[in-house]
Design a protein around this nucleic acid. Structure first.
Lengths: 195, 195
DNA sequence: GTCTATAGACCGATAGAC
DNA sequence: GTCTATCGGTCTATAGAC
């Protein structure tokens, strides 16, 4: 029983990475099974369909994101520092994003095109960030616009990730991160700096 | 001969749309042939491999983009109006972007994950917009930062498109477009409005 | 009779599913 | 480990215009 839990986790971890690097559809059962070094027969003991794996991967990402946000909260007690933490993700994960884009953005885009049943679950990843960012802006006394500000930060980051992936220009990423930080700093001190 | 050119164009048009709506990999030969109402055998008379179709589709998109930019230049003689035209695309194509994302962004992201030989060609679509936007900013007297400003507008639009597709929130799109326009207006009057 | 365009049988490989 | 469907891709046959 202990072993089965571990194997399952390994499958999810391998699928998670492969879905990110190659895309969901382009990743075959065989590729996942090979990565975990188990037979395809054994594989079906854990997951019956490919959609089941995807659901598990998304659930795992949701849990991982929740943990990451909690850690950010612990490490940065002030809302500004927390938001800055989020903004810097695109720099911290620079190489991955340059190679494969944002894991959230690219997955939701793919599932939208596939009209996949797991699409809402993937969207929940976005919502989790939005809610969290919204809370930080609310804590800054911007309750009324908290959601809009959160979405702005989210969208800005997505744009950076997309172009980083397309052009591979690290300087561009740094420049835009600075721009977003400057916007953030200006906004925290004045009431409505960017209308 | 005349007929063949027309059929070829129809194939490219159908593939273009299907690649956009369903993604490149998820679109089969059969699906394209069905859309054009020709047999699969006839299909191979025009294109030998799937990559050939993709290359033709990208080339077609490049040509279409070139035409669109020229039209914008004709319709809006001033750089500011032209840039605004670009910014408004995300509103003009609202439903498509909500359903399928940005055609350029989602294609480059997919090809990056597939490590596809056509990836550079797809990136050229981005570069075409960047160059054009850069020219407009240069015409505004911002030669030194023209490229950076162009990339900012491009990234911002990509972010809007990604979140529009993920969340389907039309109000968000309008809000962010206004924000970007405000940034543009502020930037044109002052030397360096955003650092 | 040649050339263009079309159709459809057919192939090996591999996918997901059980 | 086997099954079936479908994938991208190849091949040949043929219909009609010139």
């Amino acid at each position: 029983m202990e072993k089965s839990v571990e194997t399952r986790a390994q499958i999810v971890a391998a699928a998670d990475r492969l879905f990110y690097e190659r895309g969901f559809e382009h990743t075959s059962f065989t590729a996942i099974a090979d990565a975990v070094q188990i037979s395809r027969g054994n594989f079906y003991y854990y997951f019956k369909t490919k959609d089941d794996i995807l659901a598990a991967v998304i659930e795992s990402r949701l849990a991982a994101t929740r943990r990451m946000l909690q850690q950010w909260e612990a490490e940065a007690p002030e809302p500004m520092g927390r938001i800055r933490r989020f903004i810097h993700v695109v720099l911290d994960n620079g190489p991955d994003i340059r190679n494969f884009g944002c894991p959230v953005g690219t997955l939701t885009a793919e599932l939208a095109k596939l009209d996949h049943p797991c699409r809402p679950a993937a969207t929940a990843l976005f919502t989790m960030f939005r809610t969290w960012l919204g809370c930080q802006f609310a804590a800054l006394g911007r309750e009324a616009e908290a959601n809009a500000l959160a979405l702005h930060v989210l969208a800005f980051s997505q744009g950076i990730a997309t172009l980083s992936n397309a052009l591979g220009d690290e300087n561009f990423v740094r420049r835009e991160v600075e721009r977003l930080e400057a916007w953030l700093d200006a906004g925290a001190s004045s009431r409505s700096p960017h209308q």
